[in-house]
Amino acid sequence: MVLYDKFEKESGKDYAYRVLRENIMSLELNPGELLSEIELSEKLGISRTPIREVLMKLKSEHLIEVKPQSGTYVSLIDLDLVQEARFMRFTLEEKVLKLACENFSEELFVELEKNLYAQQIIADMDGGEKEFHKLDNHFHELFFLGVNKENVWKSILNISTHYNRMRILSQAEDSKRDVVEQHREFIEVIKNKNIDRVESLISEHMRYTKNSWEHLLKEDNESHNFFKINK
């Protein structure tokens, strides 16, 4: 588990929540990993009562699973929740991109281009999956910010905890350059106000995203046990 610097005036409970959530979302704590209240209390330097409260909060976010007579575990990646988030994200993003073709913040368009440049640098490096994932997420966030739909993006993030863990897993093996080229086309669509291209572009991006993780579910893949596959 990675420990982060504590923010000024951040309470012990808030710090524990932030550290645990970040470690779960970044896969520093693997899906299915057993968590010990005693060990967490020692590592994070707070008592077990706030640790227990943090774990219950994470449980309400579907990131922690408590098994009676067994223990507390990082939740497996639930494929049903992945599909729900995927549906919500791409359905809303299509609408947002169409709005962006009509009117988009010039300042945030520059931020899109800066983000894409940073993606290019990471794409040409070995590793860097987690940094690339952050850039990727922020790239898509900028679409929503650029058309004043910040709270819509926040809603998407709330439902995307399992989806984003899946993306981090797949991005370890994805061609980052392919993603960069897709993102370059997003920028061109907005720049040229090519609203008629939006639906096909989103469909292509959806297919690429889904295809990029299908191999993770195969039984011979080392990540296979990270998933909850609902029958």
Score class of each variant (00 low, 15 high):
residue 1 M to I: 14
residue 1 M to R: 07
residue 7 F to N: 07
residue 9 K to D: 09
residue 10 E to S: 12
residue 10 E to P: 08
residue 10 E to N: 12
residue 11 S to E: 10
residue 12 G to A: 13
residue 16 A to R: 06
residue 17 Y to Q: 06
residue 18 R to L: 04
residue 21 R to A: 03
residue 23 N to S: 06
residue 24 I to A: 03
residue 25 M to F: 04
residue 29 L to P: 00
residue 31 P to C: 07
residue 31 P to T: 08
residue 32 G to P: 05
residue 33 E to C: 06
residue 33 E to I: 10
residue 34 L to Q: 08
residue 34 L to D: 03
residue 37 E to M: 05
residue 39 E to L: 11
residue 40 L to V: 08
residue 41 S to C: 02
residue 43 K to G: 00
residue 43 K to R: 13
residue 44 L to E: 06
residue 47 S to V: 04
residue 47 S to M: 03
residue 48 R to W: 04
residue 48 R to T: 15
residue 49 T to Y: 13
residue 49 T to K: 12
residue 52 R to Y: 13
residue 54 V to G: 13
residue 56 M to R: 15
residue 58 L to V: 04
residue 59 K to L: 05
residue 59 K to I: 02
residue 61 E to M: 05
residue 62 H to N: 10
residue 67 K to Q: 11
residue 70 S to L: 06
residue 71 G to K: 02
residue 73 Y to G: 03
residue 76 L to Q: 11
residue 76 L to F: 14
residue 77 I to A: 08
residue 78 D to M: 03
residue 79 L to P: 01
residue 86 R to C: 04
residue 86 R to A: 10
residue 91 T to D: 02
residue 93 E to V: 01
residue 95 K to R: 08
residue 96 V to E: 01
residue 98 K to A: 00
residue 99 L to V: 01
residue 101 C to R: 04
residue 101 C to L: 06
residue 103 N to S: 15
residue 105 S to R: 04
residue 105 S to A: 07
residue 106 E to H: 05
residue 110 V to L: 08
residue 115 N to Y: 06
residue 119 Q to P: 07
residue 120 Q to G: 15
residue 121 I to S: 09
residue 122 I to V: 15
residue 123 A to W: 12
residue 124 D to Q: 13
residue 124 D to A: 13
residue 125 M to D: 01
residue 130 K to L: 14
residue 130 K to M: 09
residue 131 E to S: 13
residue 135 L to N: 09
residue 137 N to I: 15
residue 138 H to E: 12
residue 138 H to Q: 11
residue 139 F to C: 06
residue 140 H to K: 11
residue 140 H to Q: 11
residue 140 H to C: 10
residue 142 L to I: 15
residue 142 L to F: 09
residue 143 F to C: 08
residue 145 L to G: 00
residue 146 G to Y: 10
residue 147 V to R: 07
residue 147 V to C: 09
residue 150 E to R: 15
residue 150 E to I: 13
residue 152 V to T: 14
residue 153 W to A: 09
residue 155 S to W: 03
residue 156 I to L: 11
residue 158 N to R: 13
residue 158 N to H: 09
residue 159 I to R: 10
residue 160 S to E: 03
residue 162 H to P: 00
residue 165 R to H: 04
residue 165 R to S: 05
residue 166 M to E: 03
residue 168 I to F: 12
residue 173 E to P: 00
residue 176 K to T: 05
residue 179 V to A: 01
residue 180 V to P: 02
residue 187 I to F: 07
residue 187 I to Y: 05
residue 187 I to C: 14
residue 188 E to H: 11
residue 191 K to N: 02
residue 193 K to C: 05
residue 194 N to S: 14
residue 194 N to W: 10
residue 198 V to K: 11
residue 199 E to S: 15
residue 201 L to T: 11
residue 201 L to R: 14
residue 202 I to S: 07
residue 207 R to L: 15
residue 213 W to N: 02
residue 213 W to P: 00
residue 215 H to Y: 15
residue 220 D to N: 15
residue 221 N to C: 14
residue 221 N to R: 10
residue 222 E to Y: 11
residue 224 H to A: 11
residue 226 F to D: 01
residue 226 F to S: 06
residue 228 K to L: 12
